[in-house]
Amino acid sequence: MKIEIKDLHYTYPAGVEALRGVSLTIDSGEQVAMVGQNGSGKTTLVKHLNGLLQPTSGSVLIGDLDTKKVPVAKLAVHVGYVFQNPDEQLFCRTIHEEVAFGPRNLGFDASKIESLVADALNLVELSSRKETNPYDLSPTWRKMVALASIISMDTSIVILDEPTTGQDAVNVARIAHVVAELRKRGKTVITITHDIDFCAENFERVIALSQGKILLDGPAGSVLGQGEILAQTYVDPPQLTRLGKRLGLKKTVRNQEEFLSALKS
């Protein structure tokens, strides 16, 4: 499903103007990373995609559904949102219940629910802990439960809000694997992240936000190459990109392969 955001403004009831005119289109099946300093409005922006927040002005279309007119529960069929803080998302007593909560609400039949739950738990490697209480896990694993509870809904758009924060290398690799799997399944994935290496290695398109506006939007190679502009929102391009630049490589490189091949040519 295509996402179309037109001149979106949002002001929190407390008076903070968090979004100040964001326009953007994301096609079906795209993998997008969203970066930007703390408080630049990333979370606020994605909360509009499933209707949790309603635009102060402007509009958000998911396919041909206007988020102003369609209730959150209906949008949930198409948009899955993994919260930044898993503790705001988890409320069931066992992991299995938690992961089954979404698909059950979407009205799938019992056998489909079971297979979706099994698949999601398998993807985050939690199959063996079905009956554990999510709050008995470490916060990092709670994030994986939150992730699974959205994957099991099989939505065509999946939003991850800072999935890698506080995760060790193995868990980051696991999340990268989940993103790759979702891409293979043809899902749209939008990931907010402060982990610029994770962003460079797993996403084709990068959107940089700054003070409620889009600073840069384009292919990862071109966005991450613009260090001076990214500095405005306190984002540092990956080490290798910066090193490549200092070495005078013609192409902006994002990962080791690109770096090596640029070095050889």
Binding site: P71, V72, E88, R93, N105, S149, M153
Partner: peptide, 28 residues
């Protein structure tokens, strides 16, 4: 909690009956 449940498809805004039903998963 309501925001988390709504974004996972729990219908809390249509009918009064559904609203009352939505209270159950909220309480515990």
């Amino acid at each position: 909690i309501i925001a988390a449940q709504r974004s996972r498809g729990l219908d809390t805004e249509s009918s009064l009956f559904k609203r009352a039903g939505a209270l159950v998963p909220l309480v515990s």
